Simulated scan of single mutants.
Amino acid sequence: MSAEPNATPRLEARDITMRFGGLVALDNVCLSVPPRSIVGLVGPNGAGKSTLFGVLSGLLNPTAGTVFIDGVEMTGKSAQARAARGMARTFQHPELFLSLTVREHIVLADRIRHAKRRVWSDLLTGRGLGKPAAAENQRVDALLDALGLGPIRHRCVGDLPLGSCRLVEVARALAVEPTVLLLDEPSSGLDVRETGELADVMQRVVAERGVSLLFVEHDVELVLRICDSVTVLDFGIEIASGTPAQIRSNPAVRAAYLGKEIEQSATGADWNQGAVR
């Protein structure tokens, strides 16, 4: 991967605090996603990961703190406004139209980016998706092939296994040409082979399309294997942030909740890397 850590972050959260009544879900959390990078966000249940994702994507307004996309403050802006600035996201449970084919999902997303008026006119007049333009075909087929979805492009997603559905959701998000993509538990429910395929896709889209990825993930080994940096939350507090090697060696992280998981995934790692913040 070719992260650009000294460039303006694609996505940045500064001192995010989120309170729900007397509950402090996030307490002065900071996070930065550089261009062309993969950043992981991990923590046990109740750590505040989903809340932070909600704040970053515009579904929640923080009690305090600021959110930036490419250096432009977006705090308080809607999810639609953030999408217009280059943000896209997926959800833990794929939200797909089961009767549409894989290709039709990507066509719809492509038209939202390049021909939004046509989406509504085709659907409201009952013409379906209508005849595609040559440029649209080229973009859609290139994306399907890039994610390995070409062989199943004409299958309905309702007939596909979960792993393929997750790839369809990633492809649909990429079709709107984001600069930063948020992935919520992308490996949830996947087997080892499907997780490996997803990891390959994530690394490939960063390398080939220059997208930055931020993902919440329960699979610690996946995070430590493919991320440029990792932020760790516990009870709404950022307890560590650094490279995978630094996270592996951080005693606060291991003592807090990762324990055996991080030890088992540490084969070949240098356990004496520098400290993390």
Rank of each mutant, 00 (worst) to 15 (best):
L174A: 00
L182F: 14
S229A: 13
G40L: 07
K260C: 00
E185Y: 11
G268V: 10
P244T: 04
A79Y: 07
R82Y: 05
T8A: 10
R82G: 10
T125Q: 13
G236M: 11
F68W: 01
D27C: 03
G268I: 06
F97G: 07
G189E: 07
L123N: 01
V276H: 04
A256R: 13
M74P: 02
S241F: 12
K260L: 09
P178M: 00
A47C: 06
G126F: 11
Q92R: 02
V157K: 14
G76T: 04
S2R: 14
V205P: 15
L129G: 01
S32F: 03
P151N: 14
T66M: 14
D159T: 06
Y257Q: 06
R254I: 01
L124W: 06
T101V: 04
V176G: 02
D228A: 06
R153L: 08
A3I: 13
P186M: 12
V216N: 11
G126D: 05
A173C: 00
R225P: 06
N45C: 05
L214T: 04
R254E: 02
R193Q: 13
I112F: 11
A64N: 12
N6V: 12
V157H: 05
A83E: 02
H93Q: 15
W120N: 13
T179S: 08
L258A: 10
S265N: 10
V67L: 08
G40E: 03
V232K: 05
A199S: 05
L183K: 11
G196R: 08
T66S: 15
A88G: 02
M74A: 11
V168F: 03
V176E: 01
L31F: 00
A88L: 00
G86L: 12
D234M: 12
L190V: 11
G71R: 11
L182D: 03
G150V: 10
A199G: 15
G126C: 05
P9T: 15
V216D: 05
T8I: 07
Y257F: 12
G22L: 02
Q203W: 09
I38H: 13
Y257C: 03
G43C: 07
A134S: 08
V33I: 10
D234Y: 12
D234Q: 15
H114D: 13
I239W: 09
P151R: 07
P9M: 13
M87G: 07
V157G: 12
A64V: 05
V220F: 05
F215C: 08
E261W: 03
P5W: 06
R111I: 15
R209P: 10
A142C: 03
L183Q: 05
T66H: 15
I112K: 08
E4W: 04
V24K: 10
E217D: 00
S37Y: 10
G46D: 09
S187Y: 12
L160A: 11
G163P: 07
L96A: 14
L160F: 13
S121N: 02
T51Y: 03
A133S: 15
A175M: 09
G130R: 02
S32M: 00
G46W: 06
V33K: 06
A269C: 11
E104K: 04
A266N: 03
T125N: 09
G54A: 10
C30P: 14
V223L: 00
P178D: 04
